[in-house]
Design a protein around this nucleic acid. Structure first.
Length: 124
RNA sequence: CGAAGAAAUCGGGUGGCCGCUAUAUGUCUUAGGAUGUGUAGAGGAAAGUCCGGGCUUCACGGAAAAACGACGCCGGAUAACGUCCGGGGAGGGGGCAACCCCUUACGGCCAGUGCUGCAGAAAAUAAACUACCUCUCUUUAUCUUCGGAUGGGGAGGGGAAAAGGUGAGAAGGUGCGGUAAGAGCGCACCGCGAAUUCGGUAACGGAUUUGGCAUGGUAAACCCCGUCGGAAGCAAAACCAAAUAGGAGCUGCAUGUUACUUCGGUAACAGGUGUUUUUCGCACUGUAGCUCGGGUAGGUUGCUUGAGGUAUCUGGUAACAGAUAUCCUAGAUGAAUGGUCACCCCUGAUUUAUCAGGACAGAACCCGGCUUAUAGAUUUCUUCGACAU
RNA sequence: CGGAGCGUAGCGCAGUCUGGUAGCGCACUCGCCUGGGGGGCGAGGGGGCGGAGGUUCAAAUCCUCUCGUUCCGA
């Protein structure tokens, strides 16, 4: 279930710190073992994503980078198929994000989307 | 062959699927991009930010001094350094010795000032005390040939700096002589200082002569001497530049009076606007359009060809330098260089076929070093042990 | 990225500049006052200078390296 390039191109990045704070402050939040998902509707009509991995999780820059790359990969696999258009999504890394198996991490993100009601496909 | 140490090099590999950044090129295109293909894409420490430079801006007439900071045996290397190389001294270890190995912030406390607790008789111009030797006076015990002799106590004068459960350190050490007792007072050896001389570019080392003990320690205490240093840093800096507010100029429209006038205007007052309304008071000087400069968000440049790498030769003990040939090797900006699966390799565990693990760690303007973290592999050298000869 | 500071008893701090005894408050233990609690008074204990190395006779203090933590500027 890999994502094609045209679908990925529709997802923009969140960059400004103020936009992150708005999503964190006013959006919805759902926590799983592998990651934390924060989301909020925007007026742009397309999906935007951002990633947060703080120094609290691990002191090593190598491990933080690895967590961020895995989250980016998981989001690229899942979001184009399951996420709603016109929403901002922020994925926050946790300690388990580095060691958890990839399939479990994908399930974590789907579960967060479904439980928070921001999923396009309502699975059984 | 094994163990230890030192130095150097490397620091997992191959393939499938899906992605990221840069760049070259083809196609499409609504000219902003979309898409196909090729190529390249983290380190020895990228880290800590501890030093030294390049580069940029600011300051500055040149130079020097003061102040502050860093450094500090000698010679060399280098763009420079607190780095590196070679040498010297000192300390430690091994060895019978010759000698070998390791470490080293290693200028100056006879320029000045400070500190040196406790203990100890005394802690820095050496001098008081106990003890020692001697002289004088006095007192007393014993003996007595009645002259005195010997011993003890007390007071005073002098000698000497040898003894005194301390301490990190006690004003040269050990031995012999010498003396009333003693003392470098004299001598020998050792240590130290000075002079001469020899070797060395020098640090320094050797020899001879001589002095007669002088300079306790501490400068990672203030300080003195010598050398070096303008400051801040790519989030530096340069360029392009929206919206809003404010500034300057021009033009059009909107009022009057007076004064000056180079006849363009300028100034004052009235007027106008704001302060809820009126008076007073206070503040400001209209409106529309265009242009200009400063400059914020944002963007571009800086941004990777450089004191560059590799190979060979030459010079040098070496650090390193020179010549020739050859190569181009990351440039991101919520920040790319990956995610996932399979096989191989290595390590460990046992169920001998499985399971678990594969270090330290992620470029941010670029170089030269230092320091710290680091599983494992390979090569060379030194020492020791075993085997063979 | 750049800059500054702080690690001392269970907790909050002084002592560091100018090197020799590590101390203060709260907390803790015991005793007394009270019928008990709270509170008060008196007495007492415990151990601690973030870590490693160096200078010194001697280091919490001076020097070097390192670990942790807090704050500031853009």
């Amino acid at each position: 279930m890999h994502t094609r390039k045209e679908e990925l191109a529709a997802i923009k990045m969140l960059t400004a710190r103020s936009e992150f704070l708005i999503v964190q402050g006013k959006g919805k939040k759902w926590v799983s073992h592998g990651l934390i998902l924060q989301m909020r509707p925007n007026d742009l009509g397309h999906i935007r994503t951002g990633y947060t991995v703080t120094k609290k999780i691990d002191k090593s820059a190598v491990k933080r980078n690895r967590i961020k790359r895995r989250l980016r990969s998981v989001a690229a696999d899942v979001l184009p198929h399951y996420a709603l258009d016109g929403h901002d999504y922020i994925l926050v890394g946790r300690k388990l994000s580095a060691t958890r198996s990839y399939d479990t991490l994908v399930d974590d993100l789907k579960w967060c989307l479904r439980r928070s009601g921001f999923s396009r496909i309502q699975e059984k």
